[in-house]
Design a binder for these strands. Structure first.
Length: 493
RNA sequence: CGGGCCGUGGCGCAGCCUGGUAGCGCGCUUGCUUGGGGUGCAAGAGGUCCCGGGUUCAAAUCCCGGCGGCCCGACCA
């Protein structure tokens, strides 16, 4: 092996180390893993490449199954929304108007009523719910939509914030406020479940402050995750809409007593932003790392051989083992490409985040074994007999190890502070590029003035945790008033 | 949307200051070789130098305007 050749390759395809520049590292991982790239001819948009889309499809599958299991049905509403719809809910239009893209000309003629490209669908769905809901027997109405939305962003980052993105939006209507509130938390828990148990991304479930809540909601809930640089990522939201939209869209039903009532609504969503969170939770300086439960390819075989007779014997065994694993329900790739050395194949799959590489050559053939290389660990030998069970066990332990590592990082970088100055000091050196971010648990009043004050630190209240894991009530570090619990303050994406 | 940096074969870059035949590395193709962590050798293919205008005998290079990307800021889910 030539040293110059190696260093040339390294120089060309290197992934910037996290310690050097985390933001650059993030982009390098995406590019090297071929997950996505800037659309280039469409400002702020991205092309999600097949490998990136496969991850989205896995996330979709996990979520969709849970939506169905909780009684929801999928439907689809128009991409274009009459502009007047957005304007009906005052806070909603105020929140979204700066980021709307509007269609003004169609068929060569100016439109009498302009259409906005949906930034979210509460309004148009509200319009139809008003028609569909008449009786308490029509409730609850539990619908989800898989869709794209457009929000005109001034600054974009692949997956984390793009002008157009993919998401799901659940929209439900209920007969009582309590039912709606239960729904909001039920779906928040679905998000937390997928994040932690499938994506191995621990999250803090919480409530948003009044200043941070969704435009038009009564209360917004969220799951907040911590990235490897310590910055917070809002990974999902669930909103209690109260009767705000039902009042302006006239969504009324006759209750069992015969009187008309406005429906109680919720909406909840997660987006392709989750992929960004996934990347920044597990990946390393070698590239993407995917948790086994989410990986589109869970293991890849790398056959090793020299002579033709070795090749046929090795490939026969590899194909036999691959078939065994596939019949066990695993997603398996056999890399039998000619003209590539095993080493280059290792790098190829490693950069793409495949959890397990299975190496099999003449020596293994003779000894009836294989070599397993976990994406996050060392090589180990394993018997070819009973490989399915071995691989399942390895993938299971990798899944839990990734979650444990992420949880540990979250715990180690969560600190408490009892004064504004301490919060400021703790977050002073945190940046997206250099890391150093923390979750600071502090007592802060839910008051827009306090949110504004924290903004001076380029930080925000990420959430008011639903489960207070700290010390209960205390004195607000800004107003000095008594508040019921600590909140999470952090710099965020 | 403001400030900074950037845009040259697929990728990473040099060339630009001082205008004069478009280069290098990687990748790609073919053949041989090699194969247990980015094999080696050889021969090839591949470029509207982001776009438009201007200056000039001549523009990748100088000037103006746009488009796009990255970072910072403001804004935002």
């Amino acid at each position: 092996m030539s040293k110059t050749a190696t260093s040339n390759k390294a120089q060309n395809e290197k992934i910037t180390p996290r310690a050097q520049d985390f933001a650059r590292w993030y982009q390098d991982v995406i590019m090297q893993a071929e997950l996505a790239e800037p659309a280039e001819v469409v400002k702020g948009c991205m092309v999600i490449r097949p490998h990136g889309y496969a991850i989205w499809e896995r996330i979709q599958a996990e979520l969709d199954a849970r939506f169905k299991a909780t009684g929801h049905k999928n439907a689809y509403f128009p991409l274009l929304i009459p502009e007047s719809f957005l304007k009906r809910e005052a806070e909603h239009v105020e929140g979204f108007s700066p980021e709307l893209a509007v269609v003004t000309i169609a068929g060569g003629e100016p439109l009498t009523e302009r259409y906005v490209i949906r930034p979210t669908s509460e309004t148009i769905i509200g319009h139809f719910y008003a028609r569909w809901i008449n009786s308490w027997r029509d409730l609850p109405l539990l619908i989800n939509q898989w869709a794209n939305v457009v929000r005109w962003e001034l600054r974009t980052r692949l997956f984390l914030r793009t002008t157009e993105f993919l998401w799901q939006e659940g929209h439900t209507a209920h007969a009582t406020e309590q039912e709606a509130q239960e729904e909001v938390l039920r779906m928040l828990n679905v998000y937390a479940d997928v994040a932690e148990n499938v994506m191995a991304m621990p999250v803090i479930c919480g409530r948003k402050t009044r200043a941070e809540k969704f435009a038009g909601a009564v209360t917004s809930y969220c799951i907040e995750a911590m990235m490897q640089n310590g910055l917070a990522l809002q990974a999902g939201t669930s909103h209690d809409l109260g009767q705000n939209f039902s009042k302006v869209f006239d969504i009324k039903f006759q209750n069992q007593a015969g009187t008309l009532e406005y429906a109680w609504q919720t909406s909840w969503g997660v987006s392709t932003r989750l992929i960004g969170g996934l990347i920044m939770t597990h990946s390393d300086d070698k590239g993407l790392v995917l948790p086994p439960k989410l990986a589109p390819i869970q293991a890849a075989f790398i056959p090793i051989y020299r002579k033709d007779e070795e090749r046929s014997a090795v490939l026969e065994k590899v194909n036999q083992l691959a078939a065994e694993l596939k019949s066990g329900g695993l997603q398996i790739e056999v890399d039998d490409r000619e003209g590539f050395t095993p080493g280059s194949k290792f790098f190829h799959w490693e950069q793409r985040g495949v959890p397990l590489l299975i190496e099999l050559g003449p020596r293994d053939l003779a000894s009836g074994s294989v070599v397993l290389k976990r994406r996050d660990g060392q090589k180990q030998n394993a018997s070819a007999a009973g490989l399915l069970e071995t691989v399942r066990a390895v993938l299971d332990s990798m899944q839990s190890d990734l979650l444990a590592a992420a949880k540990k990082r979250l715990q180690e970088n969560t600190v408490t502070a009892n004064s504004f100055e301490d919060v400021a000091a703790l977050l002073a050196n945190a940046t997206a590029e250099k890391g150093g971010g923390k979750f600071v648990a502090a007592h802060v009043k839910d008051d827009p003035a306090c949110d504004a004050k924290l903004k001076e630190l380029k930080a925000s209240v990420r959430c008011i945790p639903l489960q207070d894991e700290y010390d209960g009530p205390g004195t607000c570090i800004i107003t000095g008033e008594s508040v019921p619990q600590r909140v999470i303050v952090a710099k965020a994406y």
